[in-house]
Amino acid sequence: MSEPLLSVRDLVKDFPVKGGLFGREIDQVHAIDHVSFDIGAGQTLGLVGESGCGKSSTGRCILRLIEPTAGEIWFAGRNVTAMLGDELLALRRDMQIIFQDPYASLNPRMTVGSIIGEALIIHRLARDRREFTDRIVELLETVGLGPDHMLRYPHEFSGGQRQRIGIARALAVSPKLIVCDEPVSALDVSIQAQVINLLEDLQDRLGLTYLFIAHDLAVVQHISTRVAVMYLGRIVETASSAELYARPLHPYTEALLSAVPNPSPRAKRHRLHLEGDVPNPIRPPSGCHFHTRCPIRQLPLCSTEKPVLKETSDGHWVACHLRG
């Protein structure tokens, strides 16, 4: 692969847990634990995992919406983690985000036009009123909405339409990379397909690169070039989309895949049930984070040694002592 558009190296994010008499930091939530990955220009990396595994935090760290504790993020040869002031403002034109909840992500007191147009004002992308309006109309049409929607308020739209407005807002600055933070999880299944198709269509037309965060593997398989599976702040397996779905190596990936519903009624299903809950990220298990729930664990190895990502075949990496 040529020079990747986005490189994440050893990203760490610990959230402080405050408590006690004077609100001291008494503990830390280890949300992201040395995560590294690359995304090539025009590609889509699917990032999957359960709730609380750190996938959304990863997306927000890349955009510097939250400050990473350690690690480096490189975007088109520039170090994102070291950016300040104007440089960071300029970065906002290259990277955008689409949120999960289309109801919470649009300001209820602003018209759709001013929501989409805000980026044009902040970055001075329109010379006059006419250009400003034309650009908003163009963006609305890009996402399949009409010019008459400009003066309406977000509550007048359905979930899918709102998500389109969110996409138009992200596109206003003509970004190169869009972090899609579970963009379809809150939508009806029929609407999900429409929004996914819109995202793919936009990628073809505008040459966008996506970091696509989701907990639904079926959705990710459809849109992703590569997929990375996260568990408790670590990437446990990463491979091309086809490879991962055909030959999952990590037992956690297997369990996730076995949970995807199969539309064929005659298909024989082999469900792999995981025992217990996700452990507390304040005190993650020793060794392999997954060893407390793993069906194939071998103690004491798995509970003492931290597995590293190893390449098993071309582009297929897995962090497991037994399958690596």
């Binding site: 403002l89 906002r92 985000i97 949120f99 999960q100 805000e118 980026a119 206003a172």
Partner: peptide, 22 residues
């Protein structure tokens, strides 16, 4: 902490703009 304010932050809105507009 609402997402629409986070969206404004992601667009590069200054703190005063976030407070006054959003």
């Amino acid at each position: 902490e609402k997402e629409f304010v986070e969206a404004a932050r992601a667009l590069g809105a200054s703190t005063s703009r976030q407070v006054v507009r959003h």
